Structures are given as C-alpha cells and as structure tokens.
Amino acid sequence: THFTSQQLQELEATFQRNHYPDMSTREEIAVWTNLTEARVRVWFKNRRAKWR
C-alpha cells in the first residue's frame, strides 16, 4: 500500500503519542486518513518493528 504524505503525517503523529493505539483509536485514524482499520493496524505493527 502506498500512503500519501498526509496519511503518513497523521499516522506518524499518532505513533509519537501512542505506539499501541486501541481499536477505537485505529478506527478514528482510518476515518481521518481514508484507510481501512486493517491497513492502519498493519502500519502500526510494521512501524513498531522499525522503531525497535
């Protein structure tokens, strides 16, 4: 999946605040970024792996 810079900005900003967002937070992010909750969940999983 290719993310727009706007989507990445929103995802990264949320990641800085919370590395493990809950389901409702992921659903909110999905609405803001026009992505599915599953895409958001996978992005956070991959981002945490990169962060370690």
Rank of each mutant, 00 (worst) to 15 (best):
T1M: 13
T1I: 11
T1Q: 11
T1K: 13
T1W: 14
T1S: 10
T1C: 15
T1H: 12
T1N: 11
T1P: 12
H2V: 10
H2C: 14
H2P: 12
F3Q: 02
F3V: 06
F3C: 05
F3D: 02
F3S: 02
F3Y: 11
T4C: 06
T4V: 03
T4F: 04
T4P: 03
T4S: 09
T4E: 04
S5W: 14
S5T: 12
S5K: 13
Q6T: 09
Q6N: 08
Q6F: 14
Q6A: 12
Q6R: 11
Q6L: 11
Q6E: 12
Q7H: 04
Q7M: 07
Q7V: 09
Q7E: 03
Q7S: 03
L8I: 11
L8R: 06
L8H: 07
L8N: 06
L8Q: 07
L8C: 09
L8K: 06
Q9Y: 11
Q9N: 08
Q9W: 11
Q9H: 11
Q9M: 13
Q9G: 06
Q9F: 10
Q9K: 12
Q9T: 08
Q9L: 12
Q9D: 09
E10F: 15
E10Y: 15
E10D: 11
E10G: 07
L11Y: 01
L11Q: 00
L11A: 01
L11T: 00
L11D: 01
L11E: 01
E12H: 04
E12Q: 02
E12I: 05
E12M: 04
A13M: 11
A13E: 10
A13H: 09
A13N: 09
A13S: 10
A13V: 08
A13F: 10
A13R: 13
T14S: 15
T14Q: 15
T14R: 15
T14K: 10
T14C: 15
T14N: 15
T14E: 14
T14H: 15
F15V: 01
F15H: 01
F15L: 02
F15E: 01
F15A: 03
F15N: 01
F15W: 07
F15T: 03
F15S: 00
F15Q: 01
Q16T: 08
Q16K: 09
Q16M: 10
Q16F: 07
Q16H: 10
Q16G: 07
Q16S: 08
R17F: 09
R17M: 11
R17L: 11
R17W: 09
R17A: 09
N18C: 14
N18G: 06
N18W: 07
N18S: 05
N18V: 07
N18L: 06
H19V: 04
H19I: 05
H19C: 08
H19M: 13
H19W: 06
H19A: 08
H19L: 03
Y20E: 02
Y20D: 04
Y20C: 13
Y20P: 01
Y20I: 02
Y20R: 05
Y20A: 04
P21F: 03
P21M: 03
P21E: 02
P21G: 03
P21C: 05
P21S: 02
D22K: 06
D22M: 05
D22R: 06
D22H: 05
D22I: 05
D22N: 10
D22A: 07
M23R: 15
M23I: 09
M23W: 10
M23C: 07
M23L: 14
M23H: 12
S24K: 15
S24I: 12
S24D: 08
S24C: 12
S24W: 08
S24E: 12
S24G: 09
S24Q: 14
T25F: 07
T25L: 11
T25P: 00
T25I: 08
T25H: 06
T25N: 05
T25M: 13
T25E: 14
R26E: 01
R26W: 05
R26H: 02
R26L: 10
R26T: 04
R26F: 07
R26N: 02
E27P: 01
E27T: 12
E27F: 11
E27H: 12
E27W: 09
E27A: 12
E27D: 06
E27N: 12
E27Q: 14
E28A: 14
E28W: 13
E28M: 14
E28F: 08
E28S: 10
E28R: 13
E28H: 10
E28Y: 09
I29N: 01
I29L: 12
I29Q: 00
I29E: 01
I29V: 06
I29T: 02
I29K: 01
I29G: 01
I29R: 01
A30P: 02
A30R: 01
A30Q: 01
V31Q: 13
V31F: 13
V31L: 14
W32H: 14
W32M: 15
W32D: 09
W32A: 15
W32T: 15
T33Y: 09
T33I: 13
T33Q: 07
T33G: 03
N34V: 05
N34P: 02
N34H: 09
N34G: 15
N34F: 06
L35P: 00
L35H: 04
L35W: 06
L35R: 02
L35A: 08
L35K: 05
L35M: 09
T36C: 06
T36L: 04
T36K: 03
T36Y: 03
T36R: 01
T36E: 06
T36D: 08
E37Y: 03
E37P: 07
E37T: 05
E37S: 05
E37L: 05
E37F: 03
E37Q: 05
E37N: 04
E37K: 03
A38I: 12
A38R: 10
A38W: 13
A38E: 13
A38F: 13
A38M: 13
A38C: 10
A38P: 12
R39V: 15
R39C: 14
R39P: 01
R39W: 11
R39D: 15
R39S: 14
R39H: 11
R39N: 10
R39Q: 15
V40L: 02
V40W: 01
V40M: 01
V40S: 00
R41I: 05
R41K: 09
R41Q: 07
R41D: 08
R41M: 06
V42R: 14
V42S: 12
V42L: 14
W43H: 00
W43F: 03
W43P: 00
W43G: 00
W43I: 01
W43Y: 02
W43Q: 00
F44P: 00
F44G: 00
F44I: 01
F44V: 00
F44E: 00
F44W: 03
F44D: 00
F44N: 00
F44K: 00
K45P: 00
K45M: 11
K45W: 08
K45S: 08
K45Q: 12
K45L: 08
N46D: 10
N46M: 14
N46K: 13
N46C: 14
N46W: 15
R47T: 02
R47C: 05
R47A: 05
R47L: 04
R47F: 03
R47W: 04
R48N: 04
R48V: 06
R48Q: 06
R48K: 02
R48F: 04
A49H: 08
A49V: 08
K50W: 08
K50H: 09
K50T: 09
K50I: 13
K50N: 08
W51C: 13
W51T: 07
W51I: 09
W51L: 11
W51H: 14
W51P: 05
R52L: 13
R52H: 10
R52E: 08
R52Y: 10
R52P: 05
R52N: 08
R52T: 07
